[in-house]
Computed example of a mutant assay.
Amino acid sequence: MIIPDPLTPEGAAVIDLHEQMEDLENRSGEWPGAEVVDILGPWLADFDFTCVPTPARWVAGSAWVLRRQDRHEDVVTLWADEASALACLAQHARANWDNVWGGEGIPDFPPSSDRRAVDLYYGPRDERGDEDYWLYADDIGRLASTMPEPDGFRFPGEEFCAQANSTAVFHPMTGPDDDGLPCIEAGGVLVFAYLDPDMQAVRVSVDLDTAVEQLVRGDATIPLHVEVGNATVFSAGSRAVPARSRTGRMSRLTGWVRWMCWWRED
Rank of each mutant, 00 (worst) to 15 (best):
A243R: 14
P197S: 05
A12L: 05
G237A: 08
Q163N: 09
H171L: 09
P110T: 08
V241R: 07
D151C: 10
M250V: 12
R27M: 00
P197A: 09
V191C: 15
V226A: 06
D5K: 07
G237W: 13
R68I: 14
W134L: 12
L190D: 09
T247M: 10
T77V: 08
V76A: 05
G105A: 14
A83S: 14
T54Y: 03
P111L: 09
R244L: 13
D178C: 07
G188F: 08
C51W: 07
F234W: 10
L24V: 06
E104C: 05
P55M: 01
G29L: 01
D177T: 13
R116S: 12
S62F: 13
A34N: 03
R244S: 08
I222H: 00
L78A: 11
Y194D: 04
L208S: 06
V75R: 15
T254F: 05
Q91T: 13
F109T: 13
D198Y: 14
M250P: 01
G11F: 04
D198Q: 11
G157Q: 08
S113P: 07
A220G: 02
T146E: 08
F155I: 00
G218N: 03
G229L: 11
G103S: 07
D70P: 00
G33F: 09
A90H: 12
G175V: 05
D98I: 11
M260N: 12
R244M: 08
A85M: 03
M199L: 14
R94A: 15
V75K: 14
A83C: 05
D219Q: 06
A13E: 10
L181A: 07
A87R: 10
A90W: 01
P6D: 02
G248C: 02
M21P: 00
A220H: 15
S245R: 10
E22R: 11
C51P: 00
A186N: 01
N26A: 13
I222K: 00
L253G: 10
E149L: 06
G248L: 11
R128V: 01
W97N: 03
P32Q: 11
A168R: 09
I184K: 12
V202A: 12
G11H: 00
A80Q: 15
P148C: 07
Y133T: 05
D209G: 09
R203N: 08
A236I: 05
E10Y: 12
R68A: 14
P176E: 06
A60T: 10
V76R: 11
V204W: 10
E149F: 13
D209I: 01
G141T: 12
W263V: 07
L135G: 02
C161D: 01
D126S: 12
P182D: 02
R125Y: 03
S166E: 15
T54M: 13
A193S: 11
R142H: 07
W256P: 00
A137I: 03
D178H: 03
L208E: 01
P223V: 05
L181G: 00
Y121E: 07
L44Q: 06
A80R: 12
V118R: 03
A13M: 06
H225K: 12
E149H: 15
P107R: 02
L120M: 15
G29N: 01
D38Y: 03
R264M: 04
S113R: 06
W31S: 01
Y136L: 08
V169A: 10
S112M: 09
